[in-house]
Nucleic acid binder design. Structure first.
Lengths: 185, 185
DNA sequence: CCTTTTCAGTTGCAATCCGCCACTGGGTAC
DNA sequence: GTACCCAGTGGCGGATTGCAACTGAAAAGG
């Protein structure tokens, strides 16, 4: 299935239940919510194998056979996921200039831009007892461990969930989390 | 299927093809790689609906019917995913004290710790043209837009993929990305 | 050359998973 | 005490996955 459905479903729930009797501002938020950037992103990399392929690419895997052997993924699935990642412009597909049989799959700029997501998830996994924690990412310049990936305010202050609100850039309207029930961004 | 297979597959590929003739240090990295924190994390939140449920929870959804109507997910799938998220200690399940029919699903600390992942992915989606960009996250204190989620060095310098390396905390051994081919972390 | 091997897929088939809809069973409202 | 709401469960058909065997083109070896 595709997440385009979300666009179809949400308006249906609009007039309903705990969400009616809602102020006009909230309607604007809801409209914007229908174009939330997350669902398309999840459509691309939210699938298990897509994300693992991505991780492989970040670790230097480039060829079909490398992904296949490294991840233990079925060849047809791998083929399908690579096509989707290429179509989504996360990977770039090109014949290997040194060997006409091989194909190079490399991260595009858009793909590399997912680095914070991958690193954040890795740190989370380490923090909460998944995996080993023996091997860590470090700054290539000085070999020091990298900083934690965090959500911060404009002045660098770390922010947690309760410190966040939504603002509409055009109208300036704002909204706190507890008012967001049923609105998806 | 389960990603436990990864643990089974990788050793099989150990003696094989472009990966043999490898130095002893690399073996240590490979061993550690088998306990990579990412696969278990992906097992929990890597599935499409799991991640969307998580986003819903971050936006304040709490009840079964809210998730169902808000996301347009099938009831049995929702039921299954909520159970898994609860089992993974990302959500907490408790009867609603105000209404015995309702059940409250709330983020645990472990669940809230995924905030950087969710925000990073959201920012990525905005950057690359998915979604609207009209509505943004802001600091509840001053209403200013939040900073970008980034990977940084210990001194706060932003790091990109090419600036990163791996270090083994016990041995101190290090390794660059291009040496990591076939090793998954 | 001609054979063998490597690489990147594709195809067919069985098993699993997903989505939809109807239903249950306990709790609340009237 | 009857109607309604909430959180699930069960069955079924269609889509997706995983596995294995196969193809076709390009290198490597002799």
């Amino acid at each position: 299935m595709t997440l385009a459905r979300l666009g179809a479903v949400a308006p249906a729930s609009r007039g309903k239940s705990p969400l009616s009797g809602i102020e006009p501002d909230i309607e604007a938020f809801r409209d914007a919510a229908l174009r939330c950037p997350l669902p398309p992103a999840i459509e691309l990399i939210g699938e298990k194998w897509s994300f693992l392929i991505l991780r492989g690419a970040f670790n230097g895997l480039q060829h079909f056979e490398q992904f296949q052997a490294g991840l233990g993924i079925a060849r047809n699935i791998l083929s399908d996921r690579l096509s989707k990642l290429v179509a989504g412009e996360i990977l770039d597909r090109a014949p290997d200039p040194d060997d006409g049989r091989k194909v190079l799959y490399r991260l595009t700029d858009k793909g590399e831009a997912l680095l914070p997501v991958v690193v954040a998830l890795r740190q989370w996994g380490e923090d909460w007892g998944h995996g080993c924690g023996d091997i860590e990412l470090a700054d290539a310049r000085d070999g020091q461990r990298i900083e934690r990936v965090r959500v911060t305010a404009h002045d660098g202050r770390p922010l947690s969930l309760k410190d966040l609100m939504w603002v509409d850039r055009r109208t300036g309207a704002s909204m706190r989390r507890h008012e967001m029930e049923g609105v998806e961004l």
